[in-house]
Design a protein around this nucleic acid. Structure first.
Lengths: 152, 152
DNA sequence: TGTGAAACACATATCTA
DNA sequence: TAGATATGTGTTTCACA
């Protein structure tokens, strides 16, 4: 693991808020030269600390305001089954997050769709592909916070 | 609501994957001139469809690999209480997502920390600020997918 | 919509402390 | 290891046709 000092953290915080911040501004914020700043960012990109730059799209504005959390219990716990299951779920673009959990729920999915009927289509696609013991959906009524900023 | 055509969608898809894609490439992908491309993107930025450009940081590489989902039930359901509660929760940087839910869980938080003891500190900070009926945490063992790309 | 030019930003080299 | 300076190239932004 690459080590990160406080200056790196300052850069990461700024880039998490605005990924288009210029090198000039970043150098000023971190009180280092533009040159050093460029080298640090390049290093963090190469180390995979800064994984990518993306544009964020407002879900409301494109008709994808419905967030659904889906808790899944499975029958089969073999490695081969998991691999098949994980592949199938990852391939569904509406599934934006997907975790294997501790506790009595085996997997948790976060699904982003436009409406409840849209969710139903994703649900059907899901159960058509793999055999699941229990699938239970909970709908979000309101998004109070959703950030890509990690607490660095 | 601004209307979005298929060309806009092509641009959004490309920018969701790589927010640093040059206007030249975007224009080529969408088969439009650089100029038109620039104007479309500007329009979508102004309309808030493209909400921001950010750099994504790999949680593993900065020691924030532990994701915790916290289901909360409340005693008080007044608007004033909700406002106070929402403000307090939003201000906690470890809380990266926060939803008001339908069903028997009132709120769901996604918390990003480095370890279980770190989560405990966030938990204590949370219950110190607001009175909650029931708080139950579930830990993620493995992240199988986590994307900012909406299924546009 | 398209052209083009000015302004800006990036990536790298070289030299210095 | 970090900073100053210089420079060719690429990119964005915008006025005008």
């Amino acid at each position: 693991m690459e080590k990160i000092d406080e200056t790196d953290r300052v850069l990461l915080r700024a880039l998490q808020i605005d990924g288009a911040t210029s090198l000039d501004s970043l150098a000023e914020i971190a009180s280092i030269s533009v040159n050093t700043c460029w080298r640090r960012i390049k290093r963090m990109e190469e180390a995979g600390i800064l994984s990518k730059r993306v544009a964020l799209v407002d879900p409301d504005k494109v008709g994808l305001a419905q967030t659904v959390f889906v808790a899944i219990r499975t029958r089969d716990h073999s490695a081969a089954w998991l691999e098949r299951f994980a592949g199938a779920v990852r391939a569904i673009p509406e599934v934006v997050e997907f975790y294997r959990m501790a506790g009595d729920v085996d997997y948790l999915l976060k699904i982003q769709v436009g409406s409840v009927p849209d969710y139903d289509r994703v649900y059907k696609a899901l159960i058509a592909r793999v055999d699941l013991a229990d699938v239970s959906a909970t709908f979000a009524m309101e998004c109070l916070k959703n950030t890509t900023e990690l607490p660095i």
